[in-house]
Amino acid sequence: MLVKQRISSVGIHAVLIAYSVLALFPLALIVLNSFKTRKAIFRDPTGLPLGESFSAKGYDSVLSNSDFPLYFGNSLTVTVVSLVLILLLGAMASHALSEYRFPGDTFLGLYLVLGIMVPIRLGTVALLELIVSMGLANTLTALILVYTAQGLPIAIFIFTEFLRSVSKEIKDSARIDGLSEYRIFFEVVIPLVRPVIATVAVFSMIPIWNDLWFPLILSPGEESRTVTLGVQQFIGQYTVNWGAVLASLSVAILPVLVMYVIFSKQLIRGITAGAVKG
């Protein structure tokens, strides 16, 4: 029995390790080669960047000679501000939807999560006209507003489901203590939703940081370019400078990785906390 169990456990690890290699190999290839000389990149793509083959020139040219730091800042601004708005406004709306009864509450609840099923990209044609008429074309504000609108439905869905499963007693006792409804939200509800914040954050963040569609359409201008769009254009221009291309790819990977590591512990806990139901 025990031997049998050990064999099956070895088998499971073998499968999982095999898939890990498949998932990691392409990334490792890029990061390794980004530290190599052009010659080494071509002569020995899978070799380690050691001794003569090591070179950080790619990073030099990306970080000094290009607008990469600018794109990077743009992406960071757009992602962080959108994320804060999605989390804050989403939690506020979900709190109201799960806590108070008012005329039209069911309808409003359905209306606000409609966007999960109807992708906002379908409105692109009119959205561009709207953004242009508001004078927001080629601004980061346009992207922030659109991403906030795009992220709210899933955030409201997850927060509302979660808040409905939380007992009302804590809020009621806070009310007896004389806390205003606003203070109840900030001092009681916000700490309560903490377990699902990571889930909402990760699911909202990925499509924002990685989006190509809206930056391409709403803000393709040099000043408001995001990393994703910037890398896309950069690759087109500098296909000769492979070191720089590989370095720019590696740098573009970094922030999401950091944010993911920060959130990943809570991610699964949040999903299992009854947040996502079929």
Binding site: Y111, G115, V125, T148, P153
Partner: peptide, 22 residues
């Protein structure tokens, strides 16, 4: 209203209206 208005407004203006207008 304070809790619901910001989310509802941004969502309506930048998600729902463009789809209907399209």
């Amino acid at each position: 209203l304070v809790f619901l208005a910001p989310a509802t407004l941004i969502y309506t203006i930048f998600a729902i209206y463009p789809i209907i207008e399209s």
